[in-house]
């Protein structure tokens, strides 16, 4: 799996995001108005697309898109 694919899926889900602006090193809390609903949307996206469960702690300790992607990747390869 590829991070650019993951970013593309995030961009499709969050219509507020300008395409091409989100990068692996982007701090997702600064990219758009981050709140608990957006956290749930992200968790839902990851669950449906990758069959991986992200919990509240995973989101809290992650800063960038890459951080989230790394968690997904580590759980897929397990």
């Amino acid at each position: 799996m590829d991070i650019n694919e993951f970013i593309k899926k995030i961009e499709e889900e969050f219509s507020d995001l300008e395409p091409g602006k989100l990068k692996p090193e982007s701090k997702f809390r600064e990219m758009f108005e981050w709140n608990s609903i957006n956290a749930l949307i992200l968790i839902a996206l990851v669950s449906t697309e990758y069959d991986i469960t992200l919990n509240a702690e995973d989101i809290t300790k992650s800063v960038t898109v890459q951080d989230i992607f790394n968690i997904i990747k580590s759980r897929i390869t397990k």
């Binding site: 956290a39 749930l40 968790i43 839902a44 992200l54 989101i59």
Partner: peptide, 11 residues
């Protein structure tokens, strides 16, 4: 607790 309920339902 929205996230807990969501993860419970999905799993």
């Amino acid at each position: 607790d929205g996230i807990k309920v969501f993860n419970f339902a999905l799993s």
